[in-house]
Design a protein around this nucleic acid. Structure first.
Lengths: 178, 178
DNA sequence: CAGCGCATGTAAGTGGTTACATGATTCA
DNA sequence: TGAATCATGTAACCACTTACATGCGCTG
């Protein structure tokens, strides 16, 4: 039940339309909670139904017409409650690790290429995060609490990508060139 | 579409019944691809249907009677093909990071406790993995390729937990005691 | 033979993915 | 005015989760 709270957070940061949200999920929010536009529209409907958000007054509500949403007090309250809640970490779900374990039984044919491909992808992602860090969080901007929190989140993404880059590098070197 | 391949791998390592598989998923396999017994039974049915596995001959096939499965050549071939396949890494899905980002908007009340709780959980998991490592992968057992691969997988789990422990530690210290 | 644990299943609900549909706006 | 793009949505499907159902075998 995290998507609605992801949307509430995004809308608190800045009121947006469905498509704007989709783009912001593709960029920042989606780095730790991705969502497609179909999910987002469905959830926007539910949140409006529940009285957590509302569409800003528009002349005529027609399909295809841009609709901007903002968070209502009830929505902010809901999010505040959720922040204080508990949820156990989900066990890791890594198909690549599974592939490697399977390779232990049926041979490593084709595995190396996939490891190298993932290494490149994670390296790219890491570079992108580091770019965002220098752009959005220069030393001067790490003063206020909200900024420190958002920076911590980004640090999480950065360190996660570092983990993958290091693990993949060592895996490739251990597998050798064959 | 990874669950059937997880099951094929497990059954290649050792033919098992549904419940045995469930237990093994709770232990080793589930550390990177978890599954409940309901998923496993359903998938066993599909795999048998597809001719990838078969139930070992039993006197009378009755409900409630233990059924042992083994992998057929077609199943091994399917797994071999899958190992050589490609699949992009799924974006991270971490509710805790989302909570922190939400906290940047509505305040950190209750957040610290949850971070501390997760830290303890990840620390425990890390300890368990390290125990498994010393037990199952002493230096002497890292010779053969299958063992080296399985050890790499475990190393992935270990380093992932280390990442969380380190990130949570630094997050807690940065948040202060308040 | 009652109760409990083992083992295999069924059913309903939820969240996420993929494919497609439709209206509005802009611009060549 | 036709095509491309923006924007909002519907529908079908699939994997996973949660709750429950049923049968076997052992033990007190």
């Amino acid at each position: 039940m995290s998507l609605p709270h992801a949307i509430l957070t995004a809308l608190l940061e800045k009121p947006s339309s469905g498509l704007e949200l989709t783009r912001r999920f593709d960029r920042s929010i989606g780095y730790f909670w991705s969502a497609t536009h179909q999910q987002i529209y469905r959830e926007l409907g539910r949140l409006e139904q529940a009285g957590h958000i509302r569409a800003l007054p528009a002349p005529v509500p027609v399909r295809g017409q841009r609709k901007e949403y903002e968070v209502l007090p009830a929505g902010r309250a809901e999010l505040t409650t959720w922040v204080a809640g508990q949820e156990d970490p989900k066990p890791l779900r890594a198909a690549l690790l599974l592939r490697m374990r399977a390779a232990a039984m049926v041979g490593t044919t084709g595995l190396r290429a996939e490891l190298a491909r993932h290494l490149a992808l994670h390296q790219d992602q890491l570079d992108e995060y580091l770019l965002i860090e220098t752009r959005d969080f220069p030393a001067a901007r790490r003063e206020t609490e909200p900024d420190r929190l958002r920076h911590l989140v980004l640090r999480g993404g950065i360190d996660m990508e570092r983990f993958w880059v290091e693990w993949l590098t060592s895996a490739l070197s251990e597998l050798g060139t064959e």
